[in-house]
């Protein structure tokens, strides 16, 4: 595999996407705060959208499809981040902590 042509190969992008996904899984299990888990979730989404982009560019008959899908993923991720952060602020107001360990009780 020639180093000069790595940017034109589907497999390179797929491996990067898989590594991003695995990094996200690692962070999701390791982090103990809600913000850390949100960051890891964003990394997982990034890995998925890189896969869509790569397949859309190299294999799909219509290259627009992958780009549109990635745009929708970005939109969903923005909505998710807004909701998750507002929940974190509400949780912090009630518990004075966002450590996942401290959030054990459920109250109405």
């Amino acid at each position: 595999m020639n180093f000069l042509h790595w940017s034109e190969q589907l497999n390179v992008y797929l491996v990067i996407g898989a590594l991003l996904f695995a990094t996200g899984i690692f962070g999701f299990l390791k982090q103990r705060t809600l913000v850390g888990m949100l960051i890891s979730g964003e990394l997982i989404l990034a890995g998925a959208s890189l896969n869509f982009m790569a397949f859309g560019h190299f294999r799909a008959p219509d290259p627009v499809t992958g780009q549109a899908f990635t745009l929708f993923i970005i939109g969903i991720a923005a909505a998710e981040a807004a909701i998750a952060l507002s929940i974190m602020i509400a949780v912090y107001r009630n518990y004075r902590s966002i450590q996942t360990r401290d959030l054990k009780e459920m109250e109405g």
Binding site: F3, L4, H5, W6, S7, V12, I16, L19, L20, T23, G24, F26, G27, K30, Q31, G36, I39, S40, L43
Partner: peptide, 21 residues
Amino acid sequence: SALLFAGFVAVTLLGAIVAVA
């Protein structure tokens, strides 16, 4: 172009590692 690509890949993966570790 290949060097730029390698740089972007390195930034992506190193940034991801910093983000979780």
